[in-house]
Each structure stands twice: as C-alpha cells, then as structure tokens.
Amino acid sequence: MLQYMIRRLLQIVPVLLIVTLMVFALMLAIPGDPARALVGPGEALDEEQLEIIRKEFNLDKPVLVQYGIWLSKVVRGDFGRSSQYQRPVLDELRTRAWVTLQFGIAAWVLAVVIAVPAGIISAVYRGRALDYIATLISIGGVAIPNFWFGIMAILVFGVYLGWLPAQGYVNIFEDPIEGLRHMILPVFALGITSCALIMRQTRSAMLEVLAQDYVRTARAKGMSEPVVIGVHALRNALLPVVTVFGLQTGRIFAGAVVIETVFGIPGMGNFMVLAIFARDFMVVQGGVLIMALAVLSANLLTDLIYAWLDPRIRYND
C-alpha cells in the first residue's frame, strides 16, 4: 500500500505542474494589454505607470519566466492582490471557501445518504413500483439543471408555501436553526445531480453483485436476507460508488458557482462570479486554481481509498 501511495503521489507531480500552467495560461487569454486588466477598471493610467505595473507583474519578461515567478509565489501562498479590495487574493478567498466547503460537504453527505439506500432498495425490489420511482428520479436528476431545480424549490417552498428562506446565508455555528433552514434548499439543489448518479451506480453495482455465486452461497447457508444484502453484497457494491466521489467533487464545486448565485450565498463561487463583473482577474485566477487543486486532491483520495478497499488495484496499475 505504501509503495502504491508513493507511486501515486509521484504521478501527481507532473499533473500538478500542468494544472498550474493551465491556470497561469488564463492570463495569456486576456485580449489587449494585460497590465491594464490586472489593475482593474476605472484606473486611468499613463504609459509610465503601465510600465511600473509591467515591471511589478514581470510582464516584461518571457512567458516561461513569468510562469516560474508566478508559480514560486503561488507555492508560498501569494495569489496576487484583488484589484477591487486591494487585499491579498488568498485572504479574500479563504473565508469564502469555508462557506462553499460547508455546502459542498453537506450536499455530498445528503446525496450519499439518499442515494445509497435508494439504489439498494431499487436493486432489491427490481422491476417493482419502488424501483421505477427511484429510476425515474435518477433519470430526471441527471437531466435537470441544478440551479433551475433550486429556483423551482424556491418557488414552491419559499414563495408559495413560505416554509423556507429563499435567499441568504446564516452561519450555522452562530444560529444553528436559522443556519440549517437557510441550507436546506441550496444543499438539495447542489446535491441532486450527484444523488441521481450515485443512485444509478449503486443500483447497477448491487444488481451485479446480487447475481454472484457467493451471494447465492450465503443465501444457501441460510443467512437472513438483511445479512446477505447488508453484509455480503453491500461491501462490494459500494466499490464503484467510491469512484464517483472524485468526479462528483468537481461537479459540486462547479455547481457551487451557480447555486451560490441563485441563493445569494457569500461563498467562493459567488465571489468569483462577482469578480468577473468587477474585472478582478486575480481573484478569478486564484479561485480557479484552488478549485482545481481541490478536485485533484479528491481524485487522489479516491484512488487511494479504492486501492485500500480493493487490493487488486495496487498490483494491476
């Protein structure tokens, strides 16, 4: 296992470098003078001042040198300054990332808590009404735009029924009840796609496992059905669910960008969108990098968990 871990970690180094290179390359996509873009709008600058900025951001140097300087700063936690707040990007992002993380984890937990039992029930009662309902939900859940699901939830539970707040964020550690009430709708909206996918995955994995010989043996030995399903079948059926984890992290982060906008949640996604309109480029670049790194870590974690659960992986790779 240790050997596998070391090999995986070494493999990630080139990927990490390429990821940072891609994020850095965003700067090259800015049309016109990047010096102007970097200080933000509304600043009338003469050529002399622009020259100072070019020096400061090393824009006068070759691209690869710029990348090297940028990377060495990023590694030390210097993501540049936000042009709208005149503060370090990382400080601004840090507090907001915490909000995004709360919603992301909650959505992920919610998705698993609903999807895994639903997928199992669906497989066990294959072809019956419960299975059809679960399948219908999982098909719909993948096709529905998550933010539109959120809007419709606001319409029903916020506007018509008035049960839940439609907007805003309350810190759950300061006011647990209001905090939870504010979290319910966005978390459902954020988790729906993942929930549908995991449900589908669990169902088909479970069906496959239930057809295996060892399950038949367990039944033949006279084990009760809950033990067969809960102990023998479930363990193997959950393997493919783990692989979905890495993929879903990206989905949930990307989802946060939109869902936070719908519900007015002051998270990282919302902050990045506002930064686009404020032409605060460094904030967007920093946000993209942090999110990409989070997805990369989740992928790595998934691989490691998978290898730990299924020893065959360690040797086949």
Binding site: V15, V19, L26, P31, I276, V284, V288, M291, A292
Partner: peptide, 16 residues
C-alpha cells in the same frame, strides 16, 4: 479533467 467545464468557462469569461 481536473477542471469542470463551468470552471474553464468562468476563467475564460474573466479573461475574454
């Protein structure tokens, strides 16, 4: 693969 399409779009939209 590390970049969800929405994230690429947000980055590109900020730049272009």
């Amino acid at each position: 693969v590390v970049f969800p399409s929405l994230l690429i779009a947000v980055g590109l939209a900020a730049a272009m």
